[in-house]
């Protein structure tokens, strides 16, 4: 063991060694941890509080609480500033893309992981390699591909492109997952006369559920927060997704100086994700970090 300082060994009675002892001052540690928690949470709380203030309060007293809460800000943001529509657009696009990604990604990962055939490795690497290219490189040609297909600024266009860019990681993640699943159950199902498709959908897919949940959460957040692709491929303001709408709003509302409405819009964009996180935080953290740990 050369990792630790080699000092004359002090013989410690085993009992003393096992007794829990606090060898480091805990107070400064808590102070440091608390400090970062404040740095993280304060801007978020501030935005939520500001979304209930009047414009005058926002302009004059950034640190004050609202004298009387203004729920009207939220209504204005949802209806007049179109946050409601952007929210719905995001739901449609991300929902469609997520379903498509999970279906295609799990099919490809399963086929590549459990079937031997010529070109298997080649197909696998074309998917994996795509993860290492910056999306910026594809941006210009992608715009024209989507335009030529007549899909610019349409839901199907965004859904197909979102899915195309989310499938590679899904394949990469689920490939190793399907490899580790035991083969006996599938073989038994084949003997019972199940078709290949039935084995996949009825036997293997349910067994892969933990992996599907992890990568599903990862994909949902990635797609929900997507900005670059819709910015380029979705020029129609009626079809703006939430991130796009909020960015556009922060420019236009700034001119109209409807600060309270913009804070409300920001909070509406923020809260659903944070609430979902608090409810499912263990799953979500596992899903988000799973990709990096691989």
């Amino acid at each position: 063991m050369t990792l630790v300082d080699e000092r004359p060994a002090v013989s410690v009675p085993p009992a003393a060694a096992r007794r829990p002892r606090r060898s480091y001052a805990v107070f400064p540690v808590h102070l440091a941890m608390l400090a970062w928690a404040v740095v993280t949470a304060l801007p978020l709380l501030w935005a939520v509080v500001s979304s209930f203030k009047t414009d005058t309060e926002i302009l004059n007293e950034p640190w004050s609480l609202p004298a009387s809460p203004q729920p009207g800000n939220w209504v204005r943001a949802w209806t007049e500033a179109n946050i409601g529509r952007y929210f719905l657009n995001s739901l449609i696009v991300v929902g469609g893309a997520l379903l498509l990604t999970m279906l295609l990604g799990s099919l490809v990962a399963y086929a590549l992981a459990r079937y031997e055939f010529r070109g298997n490795r080649f197909i696998y690497y074309t998917f994996v390699a795509a993860m290492f290219f910056p999306v910026f490189l594809a941006l210009v040609p992608l715009f024209f591909v989507v335009q030529r297909l007549g899909l610019l600024g349409t839901y199907p266009g965004l859904i197909l492109v979102y899915a195309a860019y989310a499938v590679p990681f899904t394949v990469f993640f689920l490939h190793s997952f399907f490899r580790t699943l035991p083969g006996e159950v599938a073989e038994a199902a084949f003997i019972d006369g199940c078709s290949h498709g039935a084995v996949f959908f009825r036997v293997m897919l349910p067994m892969a559920r933990p992996g599907l949940v992890a990568v599903g959460i990862f994909n949902f957040l990635g797609l929900w927060n997507q900005y670059l692709l819709p910015l380029v491929l979705n020029p129609d303001p009626d079809r703006y997704v939430l991130a796009q709408g909020l960015a556009a709003l922060s420019v236009s509302q700034g001119y109209r100086s409807d600060w309270s409405g913009l804070f409300a819009g920001l909070t509406i964009a923020m809260l659903p994700v944070l609430i979902a996180y608090v409810a499912f935080q263990r799953h979500i953290r596992a899903g988000m970090t799973a990709g990096a740990v691989k």
Binding site: W36, T40, N225, L246, A247, A269, M270, V273, Y277, M288
Partner: peptide, 19 residues
């Protein structure tokens, strides 16, 4: 602490930038 620290990771970079 970990729950709180993780919050910003969930937000879109646009939300973070506007904030």
């Amino acid at each position: 602490y970990q729950i709180v620290y993780f919050f910003p990771q969930l937000l879109s970079l646009v939300v973070i930038a506007v904030l």
